[in-house]
Computed example of a mutant assay.
Amino acid sequence: MEIAFIKTPIGIAKIVGDENGITEISVLDEGEVSKTIPPILQVVVQQLQEYFLNKRSTFDFKLNPKGTEFQQRVWKELLNIPFGKTISYLDLSKKLGDVKAIRAVASANGKNPLWIVVPCHRVIGTDGSLTGYAGGLWRKKWLLEHESPTSQQTLF
């Protein structure tokens, strides 16, 4: 596995992957930025930088997250949430075919190892509230405002 750390507006992004795909993208509060980026991770770094510069709304590198079959189903469904849009945990549960699985869906969402790229930040409470985000609600708010199609003072 190769690892790279890059500076972003929401912290230091940790990127982990190999020729089979990217297994982790997370954001740390602090850390040292990589002096060199392994060749296998360069496209990921480039696309993340474009995302933060408002020049990219989708990603096209290979993903290889590790998780249970159920978590994989949830993460795959997250990829269907359009840029600049949100969905509730309840609606996500319905899309997965089991409205009663809302807690399991929320748990799988919270274990998403590919922040930003698999957009778990686009899942909100049924009442529109920002709920749960492994990276902290301030990062979730930042990402949603960053992706907002209209420029406004604040979403929340």
Rank of each mutant, 00 (worst) to 15 (best):
M1R: 03
I3K: 11
I6R: 01
I10L: 05
A13W: 01
K14L: 15
K14N: 09
V16H: 00
V16K: 01
E19P: 10
N20S: 13
N20F: 15
I22M: 02
T23D: 09
V27P: 04
L28S: 01
E30H: 00
E30F: 08
E32H: 12
K35H: 11
T36A: 05
I37A: 05
P38H: 01
L41D: 08
V43M: 12
V43W: 10
V44Y: 00
V44A: 12
V45E: 01
Q46T: 12
L48A: 04
F52C: 06
N54Q: 10
K55G: 13
K55V: 11
R56N: 14
R56D: 10
R56M: 06
S57G: 15
S57K: 14
T58W: 12
D60Y: 11
F61Y: 05
L63K: 06
K66V: 12
G67S: 02
E69N: 01
F70M: 06
Q71P: 00
R73S: 09
R73L: 04
K76I: 08
F83N: 14
G84A: 07
T86A: 06
D91K: 10
D91I: 08
S93A: 15
S93M: 09
S93C: 07
K94S: 06
D98N: 15
K100Y: 13
I102M: 04
I102W: 12
V105E: 08
A108C: 10
N109D: 15
P113T: 01
W115P: 11
I116P: 14
V118G: 05
P119G: 07
P119F: 07
H121Y: 11
H121T: 01
H121E: 00
R122D: 06
T126L: 09
S129D: 10
S129L: 00
L130V: 03
G135W: 05
G136N: 03
L137Y: 01
R139H: 03
R139V: 08
K140N: 14
L143N: 05
L144D: 07
H146W: 12
S151D: 06
Q153A: 14
L155F: 03
L155M: 06
